[in-house]
Design a protein around this nucleic acid. Structure first.
Lengths: 325, 325
DNA sequence: TTGTATGCGTTATCAT
DNA sequence: ATGATAACGCATACAA
């Protein structure tokens, strides 16, 4: 592989000039810039990332830790992060924690050796550990808020509140919320938002769970819904699909007998019978923003704020006025 | 951050000895090894990856390019690759090509600057381009064979043939195959394997498509199945789910009126009504193997062979003998 | 505008 | 078994 030295030689300039011609175009005469560029192209020159990293102290690598990839929910997050990384000439170093706090910590330790900073979507695990980690390295949290640590969160709580509002408008007063994994930060936010708003409106939210966010758990949940409930909100699409399935097998029709909605929107929700009302969570934007925030952090712009990205309800056929009984 | 020099100083030895104490335990006296280790721990020393890469010529990074993450099908691949990477002290640099050959090439170029080698799962794109890339950098292909390039493939063609065998045993003679994306290497393999085996058994395979591997396309396909077909095989789970749905709405019962099976096995296939017979593709193992192969390549062990991982049918309630009419 | 020289943190070579 | 020292390839402070 050709080195900068080779390029400099071929162009008849010094290493320093060659380096500047490539990275500081305005610090060099137009003519030499062209000659260097030409030589670089001709030799197929590629900058040695390691050497560059050694001098600049930047690797150009962004560490991203997600709990799972088995849930397509996270795909847009990765896509968005990748887009932002491309825009900033950096790359994504990905690791999957499998919802295991210990494993997550180990991965974070290992990634941080190579990456300039970390983006973690870590629904479980303690606040203290994250605080401690932030002390040691640039860190942006996703879908979780810990004190004033930099974070990007999709505001599903607010979105879900809006969704609840629609249900209240339709006339529902007894609503079940099938909650997600134990200890989930996002889930706690949603429960709080829902119960607060319901009591304000003279309605009541029955909380089921915590439950694993799976299809099977949804089926189970469909059997233990409070009899009074005329609508049910699910923590995620899998639970919603399970609920839909479970309700179907026990002869309860959606939405005639009971309305159904989910707090995230996997594409399959639009293709079921009936299509399921859901919350559109702009995770791609969240991913982009997280990378942007991280770079701000690295550049010393101390924007340790939480960015909120709004989530909006997508109304489909699974929600309707309650049965008048 | 403490450097190796600091550690050496603290332990009262030279840089060289400190380095050896950490990486070549057998080249150093037991006593000094302990002192160095202790000093390193005390100072919270972390090896600078860039400096190490600069001298060794190895970054310890493995580039992985996948077509999408929206299909959970690929999740186990990433998990497996990550496991193997952990075992070899390396990391995963991931990029998503979105099934776009041009984008894929650009990503590969960018990743290759930082990674020691690439693992590409690239169902589309030309053989020539891959050959050319392999000339320039260590490369392992996944689920695709190009000449003698190193590759790891899940043998879905053979698995599907086995599945077809079961259907033939059940008495089916007219079988529809709903094929996947145009230009897919794996799909071509499967069509060939199916038609060959069918004609040998005096049966007939009707090929539909190519189709995008989506739920919606599956619904569409359910409307254009040949009337004679008593069983249908789908390129993937999404098509199968769409078919199941589409058949249901048009009043055809599975498996009484028609049998259904898929050539991959997303977990939801086990939870539908009826559960759908499918091919279990051990993608996690494929991921592990791909990383292993890449490391062999990097270590100069020229094992440019194709590794095949068998895929086995999982029989569920969606397949049954054909209706006697 | 351009060149010279130094340092980044590590591994490897060659002595001792 | 250990130490001195030379690379590795690049960016940058300083000189010219």
């Amino acid at each position: 592989m050709a080195t900068l030295m080779d390029v400099a030689h071929a162009a008849g300039v010094s290493k320093a000039t060659a380096s500047r011609a490539l990275h500081r175009p305005d610090m060099v005469a137009e003519g030499t810039r062209l000659r260097v560029r030409e030589a670089a192209d001709r030799l197929g020159f590629q900058l040695n990332a390691a050497a560059r990293a050694l001098t600049t102290g930047r690797t150009g690598l962004v560490g991203l830790i997600v709990p799972t990839l088995s849930n397509p929910f996270f795909a847009p997050l990765v896509i968005g992060a990748q887009q932002a990384a491309e825009d900033t000439e950096s790359h994504l170093l990905i690791a999957v924690s499998e919802y295991d706090a210990e494993r997550e910590a180990a991965l974070a330790d290992r990634l941080s050796e190579q990456a300039d900073g970390l983006i973690m979507v870590t629904p479980v695990g303690t606040d203290a550990a994250l605080r401690e980690r932030f002390r040691r390295q640039p860190l942006v949290l996703v879908d979780r808020q810990v004190g004033r640590l930099p974070a990007v969160v999709a505001d599903t709580a607010a979105g879900l509140a809006e969704l609840l509002g629609r249900l209240l408008d339709l006339g529902h007063r007894e609503i079940a919320y099938v909650s997600g994994p134990a200890g989930s930060w996002a889930d706690a936010q949603r429960r709080a938002a829902l119960t607060a708003q319901a009591s304000e409106a003279g309605a009541h939210v029955h909380v089921l769970g915590p439950l694993p966010p799976t299809f099977d758990a949804g089926i189970e949940a469909s059997r233990s819904l409070p009899a009074a409930a005329t609508a049910v909100l699910a923590y995620n699409s899998y639970l919603a699909l399970g609920l839909l399935h479970g309700l179907g097998t026990t002869g309860r029709r959606v939405p005639e007998d009971i309305s159904l909605a989910a707090a995230d929107d996997l594409s399959t929700l639009g293709a079921t019978t009936p299509p399921v009302t859901a919350l559109d969570v702009p995770l791609q934007q969240v991913g982009r923003l997280a990378v942007t925030r991280l770079h701000e952090l690295l550049d010393g712009q101390r924007r340790t704020v939480t960015s909120r990205v709004p989530a909006a309800p997508v109304l489909r056929a699974s929600t309707a006025p309650p049965r008048v009984s």
